[in-house]
Every structure is written in structure tokens, then in C-alpha cells.
């Protein structure tokens, strides 16, 4: 009985989530097949899916996906490591905060993507420059949220640490870090989606593989199907990553009811 109603609930919300995209696909099919949409820009769904299938079967698609994921993984890993450690230092020490606030305020508004040419010039056209863009793109949101999390610990909880005569280390690990965890996770979530944006942008400019590469290749070769495979892949994998992170977040900050 219970299982059954749960199943109904899930399939219900799945239907609700899917009906608008479904209508859009139908409209797209009608538009492209009737000639209302220019077929040299918009491929028909049949055409798109057959090219997609072909690319998957030949193994090329997996290669592109893996190289994008590999870059995201490296860049995001380094970016979060740097973001969390620097954020911790800045968040904990008022002096560090005061001496970096102007610098951060000035550098942060510069989008990582705007620095791609600079990275290519200084780091070359290889993997390093792409990973650097992603690192930078994920670094900022993680840094900012870590700082916010570490500097907003509830003073009432800190007093509990004082009353029970806890060492600095214990206060840090049992009070300050756990209270900052929800903030840090928000940073990681924003960081991961920024990484994804950055990888595609970097690949569009200089790469010979990856999802971003599919988009620019499709444009150069006048293959709209390839271009759209790239665009849709971005959306689909972006969504999957987001769902994974949300799931992880729910488990990691289990004490926040209805953590989103």
C-alpha cells in the first residue's frame, strides 16, 4: 500500500516536471518538419536523434563527455580546495578579512570566462588553461560562501563552547565548521554549476574534444545537429550534476530540515 502511494507520488511529480518539455519537443517537431523553422539552423528531432545515436555508437560521444567531465572534475577539485582553505583563513581571522576585502571585491566581478584569452596566452592552449578557467570559476562562489559561513557562527553557540571550556580546536570542529557547512555547500553547488559553464566556454574557444567543442565544431562545419547535441548535452549533464550535488548536500547537512 505504502509503496504504491509513494510510486504514485513519484510518477505524479515526474509527469508534472516533464509535460512542458514534452510540449516543447512536439512544437519543435512540428516547426522543423513543416518548414516553419529553417532546417539549416534547426535540425528536425529525427535528424538530431539519429546523429546523436550514431555518435554514441561510434564511441565519440562518450569521449567528448568524458573529456569535459575530466576537466570539470580537476578544475572543481582544485577550485574547492583553494576556496575552502582560503575562505577558512579569511573567515576566521579578522585581519585576513580586512586585508582581502577590497581585493576580493575588485576581482570577483570579473567573470572567469573573460580571462580565457589571458589563460591561453600565459598557460598555452592545452589542458592547463582550461582547468585554470574552471578552477577560477568555481573558486569565487566557494570562497565567498565559506567566508560567510565561518564568520556568522551564532555567538550563543560559541558561548556554549566557552562555558564548557573547550579548546580552540574543539570549538572550530564542533561548532564553527558545522555551522558553516550549509554555506559551504551552497558555495559548492554554485561552484559546480559555474565549472560547467566554464568548461563549455573554454572548449568552445580552444579544444579538440568536449561538449563545448561539439558546439563550435557544429557551427564551423554547418552541422546543426552536432551543435544541438552539444547544447542539449550541456543541459542534461548540468541537470544531472545539480541533482547529484543536491542529494549529497541533503546527506551532508542532514540536520537542516528540508535542505534544498
Amino acid at each position: 500500500m505504502k509503496e504504491d502511494s509513494k510510486f504514485k507520488e513519484y510518477s505524479g511529480s515526474f509527469l508534472l516536471a516533464i509535460w512542458i518539455p514534452a510540449i516543447l519537443v512536439v512544437l519543435w517537431a512540428i516547426g522543423t518538419n513543416s518548414g516553419a523553422l529553417n532546417n539549416s539552423i534547426f535540425p528536425t528531432p529525427q535528424r538530431l536523434f539519429s546523429s546523436w545515436k550514431e555518435m554514441i555508437l561510434s564511441g565519440k560521444y562518450l569521449n567528448h563527455v568524458l573529456s569535459s567531465f575530466g576537466r570539470v572534475f580537476k578544475g572543481f577539485f582544485i577550485g574547492s580546495l583553494l576556496g575552502i582553505t582560503t575562505g577558512t583563513i579569511i573567515g576566521l581571522f579578522a585581519g585576513a578579512k580586512k586585508s582581502t576585502v577590497a581585493l576580493i571585491g575588485m576581482l570577483r566581478p570579473i567573470p572567469a570566462i573573460a580571462l580565457i584569452p589571458l589563460f591561453i596566452l600565459s598557460l598555452g592552449i592545452g589542458e592547463t588553461s582550461k582547468v585554470a578557467v574552471i578552477t577560477l570559476g568555481s573558486f569565487w562562489p566557494i570562497l565567498i560562501n565559506t567566508i560567510a559561513g565561518l564568520s556568522t557562527t551564532d555567538p550563543k553557540l560559541l558561548e556554549v563552547g566557552t562555558i564548557f571550556d573547550k579548546s580552540k580546536r574543539e570549538v572550530l570542529f564542533r561548532i564553527i565548521f558545522p555551522s558553516a557547512a550549509p554555506y559551504i555547500f551552497t558555495g559548492l553547488r554554485l561552484g559546480v554549476s559555474s565549472s560547467w559553464t566554464c568548461v563549455v566556454a573554454a572548449e568552445m574557444i580552444a579544444a579538440s574534444s568536449g561538449i563545448g567543442y561539439l558546439i563550435s565544431y557544429g557551427r564551423e562545419m554547418a552541422q546543426p545537429a552536432t551543435l544541438f547535441i552539444g547544447v542539449f548535452s550541456m543541459g542534461i549533464f548540468g541537470l544531472i550534476i545539480e541533482l547529484l550535488v543536491i542529494n549529497l548536500q541533503k546527506k551532508a547537512i542532514y540536520w537542516v530540515p528540508n535542505a534544498k
Binding site: 550563543k156 556554549v160 562555558i163 564548557f164 564542533r174 561548532i175 557547512a181
Partner: peptide, 18 residues
């Protein structure tokens, strides 16, 4: 001063993660 004094705070002040 080293605390040999305990306090039961007016609000529970528990750690929500513990």
C-alpha cells in the same frame, strides 16, 4: 578564569547537527 561554573542557558542552545 578557568570555568568551574556551569550555566543552564535560558534557551536550549543545542547543536542542531549533534
Amino acid at each position: 578564569t578557568k570555568k568551574d561554573i556551569g550555566v543552564v542557558f535560558q534557551e536550549p542552545r543545542l547543536f542542531p547537527w549533534s
